[in-house]
Design a protein around this nucleic acid. Structure first.
Lengths: 174, 174
DNA sequence: CGGCTTTCTTGAACGAGTCAAGAATGTTGT
DNA sequence: ACAACATTCTTGACTCGTTCAAGAAAGCCG
């Protein structure tokens, strides 16, 4: 299904900004709003940031895009919807990657006692270290103290994105 | 263990603001920063908001408090740490409740393919409707259209807290 | 192609959270 | 108990992601 057909299928008007935003999110899963704006402006230099916010809100509302926002991060968007996957987030650099659900279709939905809530969806975020930061922390200080990774210019993974070290807790339990 | 002993056990200085914040969070699980500040000022009218932010950050860093922040909500804190429980969040009113892990000790940690990430922790958020909003939506419009709940003056659950309708998505899947 | 609605541009505003400098307080050693 | 030191708190300004509002432009339908 083309990007345009996708929009029409959801009763959304087809506009240049929407096409551009959709294309960018398809190319760069988990990109944040600012990154999306930059990329969109490579094609449409005149789009306003407000247009991008509106488009992202409209597409998320229609279920075309999914908004994710791990603690300490700004809003990120992805075009993979409806397949119930989850995310791993690196505590050191903030990189996000997809993880398929471990338990099949409806993951972890069997909460023991839901306190009377009608549960519609379960959202799972795995916290850890991405391969790069893992290697960096291992190399820099073998006994494991004060990782300080995150700057690694030659990256290729499009899903990777750098943040100021967000919230590196030490009470992690597995 | 008294609140003061708890602080000392974590090598944290014992100060009035810290005692007050800990007491408030113990009494009101899932309270947001603003609510905590208000409550703390009932005992210590002169505390600055910055002090509360500092204290919350210090206690979270030490593992005495846990910070949670569902999408569309501001930061919330709870004193229940180390027992690996999760949360249900109401899409309509934002109320938060605890849910014990369904799968035992380390829940849902068995992601199928972790993309090379070293996973330390899994965070699960269940999205749905709280009992009150569920009842309200059922009463107001039986066929299910336009819930508009959330205002319900006579509440007793201390874990409940009202927000502007945060992000009521309709693409929910179970 | 004309009219109506939605979307986009422009520019200001909001609010949670952070930064910084100095005063106050808690802790430790004598 | 007291003094010295480090940490924490007060005060006040500020940042940044996001939202609000009004009018112009663009998409869609008959």
């Amino acid at each position: 299904m083309s990007v345009e057909e996708l929009l029409r299928a959801h009763d959304l008007r087809v506009t240049r900004p929407r096409l551009a935003v959709l294309a960018v999110v398809n190319e760069h899963p988990h990109a944040d709003t600012h990154a999306i704006l930059d990329r969109v402006r490579e094609q449409l230099p005149e789009v306003s940031h407000q247009a991008v916010y509106d488009v992202l809100a409209a597409l998320s509302g229609a279920g075309v895009l999914r908004r994710i926002q791990p603690q300490g991060s700004v809003a990120r968007y992805e075009a993979r919807v409806g397949d119930n996957h989850h995310h791993v987030v690196c505590r050191a650099c903030g990189a996000v990657a997809d993880v398929d659900c471990a338990v099949g279709e409806a993951p972890c939905l069997s909460a023991s006692d839901t306190r009377g809530y009608a549960i519609e969806e379960a959202e799972v975020i795995y916290w850890g270290l991405c391969p790069d930061c893992l290697a960096a922390s291992g190399e820099i200080s073998p006994p494991g103290e004060n990782p300080a990774p995150g700057e690694d210019p030659g990256r290729s993974d499009p899903e990777t994105s750098t943040l100021p070290p967000p919230n590196p807790r030490k009470d992690a339990r597995v």
